[in-house]
Design a protein around this nucleic acid. Structure first.
Lengths: 370, 370
DNA sequence: CTGAAAGCGCTTACAG
DNA sequence: CTGAAAGCGCTTACAG
């Protein structure tokens, strides 16, 4: 099996001890033999090329290339006592409120891994004892640490990892441990604030907020961004301009209808999620108004739903979050928290009139810097 | 770091060679010492317990437990020349037509991995040279093979893997290589057929199909399932009862409107995707009809969108597909293809009247066996 | 600058 | 049934 590498390799394979090893991959010894050096020198070429004389270096590199040699990472891991791998927890029951954002985060972590000489191993802990899942995964020696996602108040993982000196980084603020520095998050509040600015510029008069019931840090953060945006524009929020709903379409629709009744045409609604925005879109229709022209709607997370409905939505910079996570994990300096700004994807749901100066090309993400 | 395991371990650590190794994890040698046996015996306890005398076995197991010993998988991999890991390609640009199904597949593969003594490593090949990504990943020795997803006509991966004797299994038929046996897929045709039966039972008179343009194996399969379902019910399809659209909401809505005009109230539309179903739902509204009562709509994949809109949808048994993939990959016998039946999640979009006998509790998946 | 030695933690024939 | 030996493929001080 796996005779895919270095088919040109020499017949010295036959000297290998165990007969059941199929010929196939070149090892450091094969390269050493071909280049007429010791295998330590080959290792030096790989790991500390500055310590190798130029002619030797070139000769060894040539043989590495010719034989198609790639170091066996498992052997490196064992010898270096470092897996150069990190664990990432996945969750069968969907990722709760975060939806598919975490799927994209996993993809982007994978994309960025090679640049940090690392890779990712997924694992699915028992929901009844998540910590045990982390303990076992670590005990295999297959990972050096973890990338946490979906951090939440009461999350036992950060403290456990801290207690056991396990390297980790969190995507999402670690709410319980304000002194903790190794996290990257997206500044949802700023995203909403920028969306309000966009709506003001687009000409909407009153701007309401459709959010979740108070108490979730993420939701409260987005709500305060809305208030800040209103303040930026010199407007004051009155209590009647906000509504809340749990993540259920019918309830969201009903809440949006109440909100629209108070706001009236010419106003806009910023929503804490695309699901809530979908409810708002239905409410607009049920009320007999036109999306965009009469009522602006902004969602959050720029999911398939927002794209399909042509709803403007606040997009988290997931790829950047993933790269930052690796930086925090592998950088030698002491980490500091990173708060990334989301980006507004403007679509027709926030175009008041077709000829409005606020109209932007559909589906073109723009950053609303303030 | 990582002093999380076996803090009760003996002080014999100090005899370890490299000083920079923090005390922490118990090794097989620690267990051997504590149990007064050689380390080979500990290994035998782990790998061939039947070859160890009962008292010895018990004594060693007790020490393993007391010291919290877990074998170092990296060392096992090196010695066994087997990674017991498989690579899974992830794709930044979304997974094309399959949507988030593949994200769930990855999660379910991860869930099922430990039962097969294996784990999963994600990697993201360069889209311009996917094969090279597979080659490099394999060359690290970190994986023994791959789980392929999103197979499609013209896919170069199966043939390359075959040529290089790399173990793999595919989620999705390998269209180009009919002789290939190691795949698991979901029988979309049967899913659609069952959906038609459900609609007939629910009392819808004419049943149309909203699909993709002909030419995609997956789409054509679903369309033929619709025809088979009509035949089952003793109905014949006429060309006017089908429409097609690319995966764009506006186009899908327009196509659905054309279809509805021909079908009239009391009929239903089976769609090849939830996105198309969303278009159908909009068309129903635009036409002034009531979803469910006047027009039935069925989607495919049971995504968030279907759930949010309360649309009946055909769900792929992803967890079962993942388990089957592991079986095919790790079973010693020669593999045979597996075609799984999807399951219909019935919601109010296919409830003709509130008191209809076809009404089923919302969100309860049921299997429509024929 | 180059190479002989030791060793990462484990497993697998093979003697006893 | 148990243990001494060899070795997986690599890296890291350390002599020369």
């Amino acid at each position: 099996m796996n005779d895919h590498i270095a088919r040109e390799r020499s017949m010295t394979d036959l000297t290998r001890a165990t007969a059941d090893i199929p010929p196939g991959r070149a090892t450091i010894v094969d390269v050493a033999r071909a280049a007429q050096v010791s295998r330590q020198t080959v290792s030096n070429v790989l790991n500390r090329p500055d310590k190798v004389a130029a002619p030797t270096l070139e000769r060894v590199l040539r043989e590495i290339d010719r034989l198609g040699f790639t170091p066996h990472v498992t052997a490196q891991q064992l010898r270096r006592r470092k897996a150069a791998a990190y664990g990432f927890e996945v969750n069968p029951s969907g990722h709760g409120r975060m939806g598919h954002i975490l799927d994209e985060f996993l993809v982007q972590l994978t994309v960025a891994a090679p640049a940090h000489g690392s890779h990712l191993m997924t694992f699915a802990p028992d929901p009844d004892d998540v910590i045990e899942g982390y303990r076992q995964t670590l005990a295999t020696g297959l990972v050096d640490g973890f990338v946490l996602a979906d951090t939440r108040p009461g999350d036992p993982r950060p403290q456990w990892l801290l207690d056991h000196h396990v390297p980790f980084v969190a995507f999402g603020r670690v709410w319980d441990l304000p002194e903790l520095l190794q996290w990257v998050d997206v500044d949802g509040g700023t995203g909403v604030r920028d969306a309000v600015a966009h709506l003001v510029a687009a000409g909407y008069e009153r701007i309401g907020f459709l959010g979740w019931p108070a108490g979730s840090p993420v939701g409260d953060d987005r709500r305060s961004g809305w208030l800040a945006g209103l303040a930026d524009a010199g407007r004051t929020a009155s209590a009647v301009e906000a509504e809340e709903s749990v993540q259920d379409l019918d309830q969201a629709t009903a809440a949006a209808e109440r909100l629209l009744r108070r706001l009236g045409p010419g106003s806009a609604v910023v929503c804490a999620s695309d699901m809530l925005a979908l409810g708002a879109v239905r409410a607009v229709r049920n009320t007999g108004l036109a999306l965009g022209a009469d009522i602006g709607v902004v969602g959050f997370d720029d999911t398939d739903v927002a794209e399909a409905l042509s709803v403007t939505s606040i997009r988290q910079p997931i790829a950047e979050a993933a790269r930052t996570a690796w930086d925090l994990l592998t950088s030698p300096q002491s980490p500091r928290p990173v708060l990334l700004s989301p980006v507004l994807t403007v679509r027709s749901s926030t175009t008041r009139t077709p000829s409005s100066p606020a109209t932007r090309p559909r589906d073109t993400p723009i950053t609303e810097e303030q």
